[in-house]
């Protein structure tokens, strides 16, 4: 059972770190999307939404090249740290942040858009700085958006398979996440272990989504 728990723990760790990073990364992007009247908005929206549309194999293939020791980002990382990004947990975190970005940005952008200008303008006229107005007015009013972004990023990263398959290298304890472990078990005809892992993942994913919808409902009342 220990060999089954390690991939599950790795997946949860990956999804957790990715979610936290995404909340920080997605906030300014979503804020800009909600506020801007710039002509660049559709361009940024499209770029952010790309991972929803692209097959994971396409992203995995590009990431393998870009993150690899011969790639643009990868070679810079090798110079900086001495080790490559592909086949490493850090590499998976970067890949997952790109892969799950739209699932963090979109709920936040919707939440920020629904705030309306008035509350923010009121805060500004009362002398709050833009940052102050954001943290003391916009942020507390967008809690539901943040909850949605967190649950979706977490669940989506937990279910990630194709990208990790292509850039992870299936290293136990480093990049062998639960979806890869399940695939291995199925491939080696070990259906009982595959069932156990799959059922576990199913429960975790369901509980995450159920919690979000439940909390959402409470708030709306």
């Amino acid at each position: 059972m220990e060999s089954l728990l390690q991939p599950l723990w790795l997946s949860v760790k990956l999804a957790g770190i990715t979610t936290l990073l995404l909340l920080v990364l997605a906030t300014p992007i979503a804020w800009w999307l909600a506020q801007t009247r710039s002509g660049l908005k559709p361009l940024v929206q499209s770029l952010v939404a790309l991972p929803i549309v692209l097959p994971p194999t396409v992203m995995g293939f590009y990431l393998l090249i870009v993150l690899g020791p011969a790639g643009a980002l990868g070679s810079w990382w090798v110079e900086l740290t001495g080790s490559a990004l592909t086949f490493s947990f850090t590499g998976l975190v970067i890949a997952s942040c790109i892969y799950s970005l739209p699932f963090a940005v979109q709920p936040l952008a919707v939440a920020f858009e629904s705030l309306g200008k008035q509350k923010l303008e009121a805060a500004w006229t009362l002398g709050a700085s833009k940052a102050d107005a954001f943290f003391s007015v916009a942020l507390p009013l967008s809690v539901r958006g943040y909850l949605g972004a967190m649950v979706l990023s977490f669940a989506h990263t937990l279910g990630e398979f194709g990208v990790i398959l292509m850039v992870g290298g299936n290293i136990p304890g480093e990049t062998r996440v639960v979806s890869i472990a399940i695939y291995d078990q199925v491939e080696s005809l070990n259906y009982a272990a595959a069932h156990r892992l799959s059922a576990l993942l199913l429960v975790v994913a369901f509980v995450a989504l159920f919690t979000m919808f439940l909390v959402n409902r409470r708030w709306r009342r």
Binding site: G68, A70, G169, I171
Partner: peptide
Amino acid sequence: LVFGQNIAQTLQFVATRNA
């Protein structure tokens, strides 16, 4: 060691110089 899911992916890791 890094593990390809199959022999073609193993070759891909080497051909892209990741391994």
